[in-house]
């Protein structure tokens, strides 16, 4: 009974912890803009939390360079199960425009397992909302993805 309640609340109100793993901040700006009243991610119950121990979903932006790689692994380990990881932006998918650079990683999935990828440079807030809802398994009637 309690676990049904817990999984219902995780799906209806996922709490998100955002990590900037050496991003240029473009994706971070679009992610935070998705929480503003104009795009309004909070109507789905999504809340940004200050600690990974309170989170259900980890959102990672940026090309993961050697310094942020170990911090990202530590943060991922602190999130309690069940957890999901979303990689936002071209850099988080594969290294983006910085592929091959002396310090550019090969995407977030070379460091931690990723459940959802949101491409774009940066992705629009609508794309981020569409992605998060897809992760939660919501079905959208309209094609616009809102």
């Amino acid at each position: 009974m309690a676990s049904r309640l817990a999984s219902w609340s995780r799906k209806r109100s996922p709490w998100v912890f955002h990590v900037n793993a050496s991003s240029c901040n473009g994706c971070d700006i679009e992610l935070v803009a998705a929480f503003t009243p104009r795009y309004d991610l909070e109507r789905f119950g999504v809340v940004l939390v200050p600690s990974p121990r309170h989170a259900d979903v980890l959102v990672v932006t940026g090309v993961v360079n050697p310094q942020t790689k170990e911090r990202l692994q530590r943060i991922y380990e602190q999130i309690p199960e069940p957890k999901h990881v979303i990689a936002v932006g071209a850099c988080a998918l594969s290294g983006g425009v910085f592929q091959g650079c002396y310090n550019a990683g090969q995407g977030v999935d070379s460091v931690i397992p990723v459940d959802l990828y949101i491409p774009g440079c940066p992705p629009r807030p609508e794309a981020i909302i569409y992605g998060i809802r897809k992760l939660l398994g919501e079905k959208d009637e309209t094609h616009s993805g809102n």
């Binding site: 050697p66 790689k69 091959g100 002396y102 310090n103 550019a104």
Partner: peptide, 19 residues
């Protein structure tokens, strides 16, 4: 150092642990 012209990115990536 990385931004000198003769430096090879592949060597740095291997040494630092990316590849």
């Amino acid at each position: 150092p990385p931004l000198l012209k003769g430096t090879s990115s592949e060597k740095i990536r291997k040494a630092v642990g990316i590849e």
